[in-house]
Design a protein around this nucleic acid. Structure first.
Lengths: 228, 228
DNA sequence: TAACAACATTGATCTGCAACAACTTTTTAA
DNA sequence: TTAAAAAGTTGTTGCAGATCAATGTTGTTA
């Protein structure tokens, strides 16, 4: 993990709300962002540790997950550039309630939590914006609750595939995660993740070539996703 | 459902943050709270409908739940007086992502959502307070995700029993919910909820007398809860 | 490029739980 | 006060999905 001090948030200044807001307020000199680079597999933040910084993902992919019983995790979502890592933790709870770790090389921007608080004390819209993102995360988690509890294998995998295609913005995408992680994203075992993938392939619903997945029959996939 | 117009929020003015904040700001005349009474079983708010009011539960018990596939619901928590109904929905999402319905006769206090927004535009602490409550709800839901997915019958029921005893603040409490609802709270079938209760009773872990449950061996119960 | 580790795949087995059925008890309302 | 409905209880059965095991494939590093 290399830490590079920067006077401005170079890699994310075009997308990142925190930077834009601070600029608008003439506070950008006070942000003191630090650019931190994480290697693949490295942990960006850990469940039950203190939230000391707001972290913005500038480049790369990361997974947000919660630790389950005897090493079985559930991946909540995959983070893309410009996502807040720590959004769900900025408020209220002093500790992270989840883990984030790097799926690829990740460039992140760290800003001290006290600076953020200063920002949202002075700027209502910023706080309200954070709130809205917060709110939609909550409803996403509730949907996940139902899926994990009441859908079966095929429905869960269909859901993950649709999620991933929307995330990558294409019906053809290369998985940045392993089959084991696809299982964790669907909250099923690795073996069953593989099994369902091959089923879908044999039924002509998806194309499968190693890490590259192509959604061929979106209609059927949506049906499987909806019915469960 | 009877609606009674009030010039002040009579039943909740001692506990309710919204009322206290508005008082402090000299805004209490503008709150226009309406006291609304719901009978047992009545729906207080419905999933996927617009959030038009902040609702505070002043008297009675209610259940917050999400609708699953073919009528199988999951109860997220039991609401007690002074709880915000709609806390999780106030921000961002224009629609409720869950249902709330009355378990007993419920007195609630409705305040127009625009009034609330006015309040938190003028009062940072109020917004930050809401945020904190919001944040702890999120970590509660995450814990629930793991439990529902990875624990088995006994662990889930143990969790519900501990939750209820903490809610009622006593090791002996009378269930306001049915066995079917205890099942929904634990995300298991009604039959298995009953079965595990009798098991626990036979093992001397709990005392069971109709609706009255007494937690006898908290240590063992916690162990079952932790291990799953 | 050999050797090992990580990842992927497939079949076989076992277990936990939902679903069904049949019954008793309690609650509700006519 | 009584009939009907709702809630609670118990045993049985079948199936979904985790786990185990064996093997194939790809990737990494000395």
């Amino acid at each position: 993990m290399r830490i590079v001090e920067k006077t401005s948030c170079e890699t994310c200044d075009h997308k990142c709300d925190i930077f834009l807001t601070s600029k608008e307020m003439g506070l950008e000199q006070e942000l003191h962002p630090r650019q931190v680079v994480y290697k693949k597999y490295e942990s960006i933040c850990r469940q039950n540790t203190a939230v000391t910084h707001a972290i913005i993902l500038c480049e790369g992919n990361a997974k947000m997950y919660i630790e389950g019983i005897n090493g079985k995790n559930i991946i909540l979502n995959i983070l893309m550039p410009s996502n807040y890592i720590g959004l769900l933790a900025v408020f209220g709870t002093p500790n992270y309630s989840y883990n984030v770790s790097a799926l690829t090389l990740c460039h992140t921007c760290h800003i001290d939590i006290e600076t953020i608080k200063k920002l949202y004390y002075h700027n209502h819209n910023f706080l309200i914006q954070l709130n809205q993102a917060f709110g939609s995360s909550v409803s996403a988690i509730m949907k996940k609750l139902i899926s994990l509890n009441q859908k079966q294998l095929r429905g869960k995998v269909a859901e993950s595939l649709i999620y991933l295609s929307q995330l990558y913005g294409s019906n053809t995408f290369s998985l940045t995660i392993t089959r084991k992680e696809l299982g964790e994203l669907s909250a099923i075992s690795e073996e069953n993740a593989v099994r369902v993938l091959t089923e879908f392939k044999n039924e002509g619903i998806i194309g499968l070539n190693g890490k590259v997945i192509e959604l061929l029959d979106l209609e059927v996939l949506h049906k499987i996703y909806t019915i469960g």
